[in-house]
Structures are given as C-alpha cells and as structure tokens.
C-alpha cells in the first residue's frame, strides 16, 4: 500500500488519479444523460419520476452514487492541489505570453472550467437532489392503463410522514385494470425550475464548460495513462469530441431549453 501512496503522491501519480477519476465521471455522465432523456417522454413525468425512485433506492446504485460523490471530491481536491503546485512552479509570470496556436484553449483552462462545473454541480444538487431527498417535493398519484401502459391521469396527493413510493393495481373486472403509481413529483420540480431564466442560463453555461472540459479531459486522460498509439489516437479524439464534447452536453442542455420554451 505504501508504494501506491507514494505513487499517488508523484507528479505522474496525481495525474493518473485525475484521469481515472475523470474517466469514471465520464461513464457516469453517459448513464445520467440517458436516464434523464426520460424527461422527454410524453407521460406526465411518470417514467422520470420512477427512474428517480430507482436511482435513490436501489442499493447497488446507492453504493455507486456514494463512490461517485467521493470521486468528484477526489477529482476536485486533486485538481486543486495540482493547480496550486503548478502555480507555485512559476512564481513570476510572463509579461507577455501567448499559447501556441496548436494548444487548445480548454487545455490551459481546465481549472476554470472545472470550477464552473463545480458551481453548476452544487446548484444542480441543491435544486434537485437535495430537494428530492430532504425538501418538500409533492407526492403524486399516476393512473396508468395496465393494458397499454399509457398514463391516464395524475393527481396530487396530500403528503404524509413516512410516505414511501409504491404502486398497486386495481382490477374490478368491469373497467380496464388500472395501475396507480405513487411517487415524489421531481418532474414538476424540474419543469418549474427550468422556467427560471437564470437557472437555464447556468445550465447552458455548465454544459458548455463540461463540453470544453471533456473535449480536452477525455483524450488527455488517455495520454496521462500512457495509452497513446497511432491506431487508437483518432478514435479517442473523436470519442472525446463527439460523445463528450457534443452529444452529451447537447442532450443535457436540451432539457432546460425544452422546458423553458415548450413546457
């Protein structure tokens, strides 16, 4: 274990830590983005609300989520430590300094981008995760047709202490069987939040920051891990640009935009 600690304390070790935590966060983003796409389902938010229940109650997911929080923390702390060390390595700065054209802007501003992302994350967690866990999010009851799964209605429930999400089916043999689903209505919280201009703006800024952060960060982590070979360099670069620089940020950004303009 001592050798691992020493490794992690070396310049390369710290970078390896950054890249591994970063890559782990990247995989989470894919999961998170695909889950959140349920917001677009035309079902009065049922799928999204159910997904929220799953994410907050299923034990393996819960474990992964704590790992995730730890990873974020590690990534941030380690990043700040690196940035401070890097700053100390040049106590007197240049009077005139130009980045060579070949260096991307993002690569030299990872700390700034990371900081924006951190602010975004804190707001994001406060807005939804905290509210969902500890705030007074309304309980709702969905009426769902068992036959075709279509959502028939959604009614507000009076909230009671120790209420748990649950569902039951009513089949009186006369009318078509109906499933009732009782969940916290995070969907409406999202809908409401994304009416606020400043929140939408913050989200768009956050996504822009994530895009830039990852276009550089994704491929940079492979370089740090020494995984550089002409055969895979192009694939990694394109993955970084397309998946993490474009698709995922756009997917996320489309949510506030959608609710702001259309819902």
């Amino acid at each position: 274990m001592g050798s691992v600690t020493r490794f992690l304390d070396s310049s390369i070790g710290r970078k390896v830590l950054m890249s591994l935590t970063g890559l782990f966060l990247c995989t989470f983003l894919i999961v998170h983005a695909s889950g959140n796409l349920q917001l677009f389902k035309n079902d009065m938010g049922l799928a999204f609300n159910q997904y929220s229940v799953f994410m907050t109650t299923f034990t393996p997911i819960k474990i992964v989520s704590y790992l995730l929080y730890a990873t974020i923390l590690l990534h941030v702390i380690s990043g700040v430590r690196l940035a401070l060390a890097n700053k100390a390595a040049r106590p007197v700065s240049y009077g005139a300094s130009k980045m060579p054209g070949s260096s991307s802007w993002a690569s030299s501003n990872m700390m700034v981008l990371g900081f924006i992302i951190l602010i975004f994350l804190v707001t994001h967690m406060a807005n939804f995760w905290y509210k969902y866990k500890f705030g007074d999010v309304e309980w709702v009851k969905y009426e769902v047709s068992v036959m075709d799964g279509s959502v028939i209605g959604k009614t507000t429930m009076p909230s009671a202490p120790h209420m748990q999400p649950h569902e039951y089916v009513v089949n009186d043999g006369v009318s078509a069987p109906i499933k009732y689903v009782i969940v916290k209505d995070l969907y409406s919280v999202v809908q409401l939040a994304f009416q606020e201009v400043w929140i939408v703006a913050l989200y768009l800024l956050g996504m822009l920051a994530i895009a830039y952060h990852l276009v550089h960060g994704f491929q940079s982590s492979f370089q740090t891990l020494g995984l550089r070979h002409p055969a895979i360099a192009g694939i990694i670069r394109n993955l970084g640009i397309w998946v993490f620089g474009i698709i995922i940020p756009i997917a996320f950004a489309s949510m506030p935009v959608y609710f702001f303009f259309f819902a």
């Binding site: 370089q223 891990l225 020494g226 550089r228």
Partner: peptide, 29 residues
C-alpha cells in the same frame, strides 16, 4: 519543483527540435 503536465502540448509546439509529446505518454506508461 517543476509543475505538472496538463497535456496542453505547448511544449511540443515550442520545442526547437520538435520532440513529440508521445514521449510523455511513453514515460507515463
């Protein structure tokens, strides 16, 4: 007391002998 690499690749761009940053990947490995 040197700083750490953040893969901006400015070094390669400014190196008068154009040493490639693939060397850095190799060293990391």
């Amino acid at each position: 007391g040197f700083g750490n690499c953040t893969n901006t690749e400015a070094c390669e761009a400014e190196c008068p002998k154009q040493i490639s940053v693939s060397n850095i990947a190799r060293m990391n490995r």
